[in-house]
Write a protein that binds this DNA or RNA. Sequence first.
DNA 1: CGGGTGACTTTAC
DNA 2: CGTAAAGCCACCC
Length: 111
Amino acid sequence: MKKSDDFYSRVYEIVKCIPSGKVTTYGLIAEFLGAKSSSRMVGWALNAVIDRIDIPCHRVVNRLGELSGKMHFDHPQQMKDRLLAEHVEFIGEAVDLSKHLWKPDDALTDL
DNA sequence: CGGGTGACTTTAC
DNA sequence: CGTAAAGCCACCC
């Protein structure tokens, strides 16, 4: 495996590294990749792999912790349901980032 | 190269 | 809270 293929591949690698019970944001991933303004591409990249269980797209939320991508799931409720199953606490419809925010930097330890 | 796109973000009304 | 618009950038054709 290469450490850097494309922007997309990097997104997948990072998302796959998100530990259970943790979530991250599009902006954080994009920023980590060096293109903080390409946060949209992060979500778009996930949409291309939404079918791959290898990539827990449900652990990626917007900067407020809202499940902005749930609408793209076959069953939107599943996104929140999965997070709840991973002991992720919610504040209304948003994840409690103050307790479950994960940074790509933490992946460096494993990569 | 250029145009279209988007699961973002920010500002504004 | 809602919608709108702009900025922004990588990918695809």
